[in-house]
Amino acid sequence: MTPLLQVTDIAKFYGQRIGCTGVSFDLYPGEVMGIVGESGSGKSTLLNCLAGHLTPDRGSVCFDTRADGLRDTVSMSEPERRMLSRTDWAFVHQHARDGLRMNVSAGGNVGERLMAVGARHYGDIREAATDWLGRVEISVDRIDDRPTAFSGGMQQRLQIARNLVTGPRLVFMDEPTGGLDVSVQARLLDLLRGLVREMNLSAIIVTHDLAVVRLLADRLMVMKDGHVVETGLTDQVLDDPQHRYTQLLVSSVLQV
């Protein structure tokens, strides 16, 4: 089986400071990988390098494109990369307002990616938007409301609908449950888990919340000071951490 994403020796520097360095991994279809670490560990820098928001100083990020198989997204042309990012890729921001158009209705937000890839039938777009609002548990009578009128949890679910409507194969998530109430987090996690399975999505989730990765991620990557210090099965890394830093991280979580 070909990996969906093949990351080789990614490095990003901010002047003298290391953003992240020496990161390599393969991600296979249907796999969910968590990246954990404290603030400044380089996990967000890495995610942005993978998603094409930052250009890494070294390394390659090969994606298994539908047309041509594995292609390095770092060296591909910008139009190609932008096309990927609105078809086969999705990016869920921590703050929904970074990923939504706040002055466009919920239906328009969901429909945008469809229109961006050429959908020109209003009825069809409307139907897809209706379907997706239902799937993320937003009442269909809110379809013409703007996200400014939504709660934080609803905004986040709308952002997910907007991202998944084109049937992407790889989803990047940056602290998707950050800043939400605990009860809202649980609902979102459940929703994400269901969607990941139904759509056979691959996902890379950056978070500092170990409970989130335990529930969502198959595999885990632990980062510190821009380096990957430990990788493995999520439950194995959390229950039998090998590296000094991972042990500290796991033992620092308050038990409830």
Partner: peptide, 18 residues
């Protein structure tokens, strides 16, 4: 420059929906 004009139709979509 990249001919990404989906947003233009979002405007028309909003018109019809409203």
């Amino acid at each position: 420059s990249l001919e990404e004009y989906g947003l233009m139709h979002v405007k028309l979509y909003e018109d019809i929906s409203q």
